[in-house]
């Protein structure tokens, strides 16, 4: 199993990380805002993560870390 962590306080909600996830588990949490005032990116179902790190690669703020 792979594991994705977000430094949520630095997320700008640009959603680029959500675009290329092969299992569609990265999304913006529209139910809340981070301290910058953005909807932060989250993983909905970590079990499904393959650890491809496409989300981390796409993130322009380098806030995503992926472990496998």
């Amino acid at each position: 199993m792979a594991f994705v962590t977000f430094r949520e306080e630095r997320c700008k909600g640009c959603a680029l990380c959500t675009t290329y996830c092969p299992v569609n588990i990265v999304t913006l949490d529209k139910s809340r805002f981070n301290n910058k005032g953005f909807h932060p990116a989250v993983v909905t179902d970590m079990e499904k993560c393959k650890g491809c790190a496409f989300c981390a690669r796409m993130c322009p703020d380098l806030v995503i870390e992926v472990e496998k």
Binding site: K12, L16, C52, P60, D61, L62, E65, V66, K68
Partner: peptide, 25 residues
């Protein structure tokens, strides 16, 4: 093992760039 983490030589601080801007990447 880490598949991706912020590179050591990028200082650990928030970028001033706009959301979605590619400079940080």
């Amino acid at each position: 093992r880490k598949v991706y983490s912020r590179p050591q030589s990028v200082v650990d601080m928030p970028f001033h760039y706009c959301p979605g801007c590619h400079h940080g990447l």
